[in-house]
Amino acid sequence: MLENKKDWKAWLYLAIPLFLLVVFTFYPLIKTILISFFSGYNPISDEFGNYFDLAAYAALAKDPYFKDAIKNTLIIVFVSVPVSTALAILIAVGLNTIKPLQKFFQTIFFLPYVTNTLAIGMVFSVMFSHPLTQGVVAEGLINTLFNLSVDWVGVTATYNNWMMVVLIYTVWSGLAFKILVFIGGLQNISKQYYDAAKIDSASPKRVFTKITLPLLSPIVSYIIITSLIGAFKSYEAVLAVVSNSNRLDPERWTAVAYVYDKINQYGFDNQGISYYSRGAAGAVVLFLIILVFTFINLYVSKRRVHY
């Protein structure tokens, strides 16, 4: 009887979170999947149309803008996530080692996490700016410091230039949270392991690879999974850093930018497919990609993570 009362109370406590999950997570997800199957969906009247088909997915497979958006997204994911994670571990180990001004440096490294993403992106855009007409506007900070005259993020910027700026920004902005989490993990590692390593005269490299990394592996796995998901959903950073006149050029789209562009249009394309259906199909494809990489990460974690 007592256990039944506890179950009832537990379900009561879970009622509101479950309701919010159903309304704001599961319902939109199911609705998006359904919309992607109906190429004639009308977002104004919320009518699905008469055709239950995969025309929106077939159109995505032939759309060069979507392919480029996926390529841009994958580059951001597979460059920024490993680089930022490795740097965060090294910085966290360094901060955990030093004692003077430790809290001060931790605060400095944490500042990007509590600063508006678009605001920081606009600062990066100004730093890497380059005037189209020489002498009218001053060069950006980077060009001035290194005595260059390169268009990094403007309308004439090459793919490699603007992508490099986006990657620098993505790595830098992602460091703050990772460093904070890794510092917390390092401070929870028992000192007895390091004391034993000192007795054995183990080198710092061996201590790092045989003690620190294995004991941090659960946190590393968590950081990689969350970072992968966040990087696949990149949009605000790219919009703030390399957009022109508050708009992203199609060749600079990420997968999320492609979806936003389509759902902001009303009507049908020249193939008779609703723009909203194309956007929904793009969102479902992105969801499946994230799901696949998450499961791969979880599978690898079972073999590599030490609890």
Rank of each mutant, 00 (worst) to 15 (best):
M1S: 12
M1Q: 08
K9W: 15
W11Y: 14
L14Y: 12
V22H: 06
T25W: 07
L34H: 07
I35A: 03
I35V: 15
S36D: 02
S39D: 06
S45R: 13
N50R: 15
A56P: 04
Y57E: 05
A58H: 10
N72F: 05
I75L: 13
I76E: 01
I76V: 13
F78A: 05
V79D: 09
A88E: 04
G94A: 04
L95H: 04
N96E: 10
K99V: 13
K99Y: 08
P100L: 10
Q102G: 11
Q102E: 11
K103D: 12
K103L: 06
K103P: 01
F104G: 10
V114C: 04
N116L: 01
N116R: 02
N116Y: 02
T117E: 13
L118W: 09
V123I: 15
M127F: 14
M127Y: 05
H130D: 04
L132Y: 11
L132T: 14
E139M: 06
L145T: 08
L148I: 14
L148F: 15
W162N: 03
M164S: 13
L167K: 01
W172Y: 08
A176S: 15
A176Q: 06
A176I: 07
K178F: 03
F182R: 07
G184P: 02
G184Y: 04
Q192D: 13
Y193R: 08
Y194P: 02
A196P: 03
A197D: 11
K198P: 01
I199L: 09
D200L: 05
S201D: 15
S203Y: 10
P204C: 09
V207S: 12
F208R: 10
T209E: 05
T209N: 11
I211A: 05
L213S: 09
S217K: 09
P218R: 01
K233N: 14
S234E: 09
V238R: 00
A240V: 05
A240C: 07
S243H: 12
N244S: 12
S245E: 09
R247M: 12
D249G: 10
D249R: 08
D249A: 11
R252H: 10
A255P: 02
A257N: 08
Y258I: 12
Y258G: 06
Y258A: 04
Y260K: 13
N264P: 03
N270I: 13
Q271P: 02
G272R: 15
Y276A: 10
Y276F: 15
A283S: 14
V285S: 00
L291Q: 06
V292H: 02
S301W: 00
H306F: 11
